[in-house]
């Protein structure tokens, strides 16, 4: 059984079907790309998976559990972490604290433990810092711990979002246009990073406009157009598929 299984997923905005009867599987340990022209419904699919929207129809099964109607924070603790298309960091807080926020959902300390700081609470706090630093090191931001997040470069802000998502110790990480605003060299490093994430047995699902990145890093690709799935398969299969070419380039109507 696939790690993530979408079945007949449908979401309307007003009368418009933003996502229309979309089904696909994400196998455990794979890198899957979700592509399509602007407005195809890719981000809506992500928002449905992560619980920001509730689907009008269909099922989302993750690791044997139905995610529909579960609140976002609970979906995160079940093991799905995400990054945002427009960077959403906690700008005024330090890089370390941003990364620590991911581990929040794995911590137990409540209000009284935070006030009276028993030993286990202090140890938990230490563990949170260790994990945050480990993930920052993994994405290559360890030198900037004390900086405010807003002072990082654009590319580094994207990396910090990935570190924050990894700190939730996810089974599946969802990347929404991770290469947006990155230069060529940063993109190359990102490709390597995505592979390293997969090597840690974390499944990757990503939306990306940069076709080179998608074709290079993804093992399986799902193509959406106007809310519908029009193709899926290996990068080679998708590239040759006439429906995909039509969606991206248009077709002569003769």
């Amino acid at each position: 059984m696939a790690l993530l299984h979408l079945k007949n997923l449908t979401k309307y905005f007003g009368g418009l079907a933003a996502v229309d009867d979309v089904s696909f599987d994400v196998e455990e340990g794979s890198i899957v790309g979700l592509i399509g022209p602007n407005g195809a419904g890719k981000t809506t699919v992500f928002n449905l998976i992560t619980g920001h929207y509730v689907p009008d129809k269909g099922e989302i099964i993750f690791d044997g559990q139905n995610l529909v109607k579960k609140p976002t924070h609970q979906i995160v603790s079940l093991g799905i972490a995400r990054t945002f298309q427009t960077i959403r960091l906690f700008k005024e807080l330090s890089v370390l604290e941003n990364a620590m926020s991911g581990y929040h959902c794995r911590m137990k300390a409540g209000i009284f433990a935070c006030m009276f700081k028993p030993r286990w609470q202090r140890e938990e706090e230490k563990r949170a810092i260790d994990i945050a630093i480990k993930e920052l090191e993994f994405v290559g931001l360890k030198v900037d711990l004390e900086q405010k997040a807003k002072n990082l470069s654009y590319g580094n802000q994207r990396l910090l979002e990935i570190a924050r998502a990894l700190a939730t110790s996810p089974k599946l990480i969802i990347l929404d246009e991770p290469a947006g605003g990155m230069n060529d060299q940063e993109t190359q490093e990102l490709i390597q990073l995505i592979r390293n994430i997969r090597d840690r047995k974390i499944t990757v699902l990503l939306i990306e406009h940069d076709m080179n990145l998608v074709m290079d890093v993804c093992e399986y690709i799902v193509v959406l157009d106007n809310g519908k799935k029009i193709s899926e398969g290996s990068p080679e299969q998708v590239r040759e598929d006439p429906r995909v070419i039509e969606a991206y380039l248009g077709i002569d109507e003769e």
Partner: peptide
């Protein structure tokens, strides 16, 4: 007591909410 709360998981969670609610929820804060 407030200073202790501020320097803990709890105080940070409140700040995450203040900074960006959507991101806070998206990283697992209820």
């Amino acid at each position: 007591l407030f200073e202790r709360l501020r320097n803990s998981r709890f105080g940070r969670a409140l700040n995450y909410i203040k900074e960006d609610e959507v991101a806070a929820e998206g990283t697992g804060v209820n």
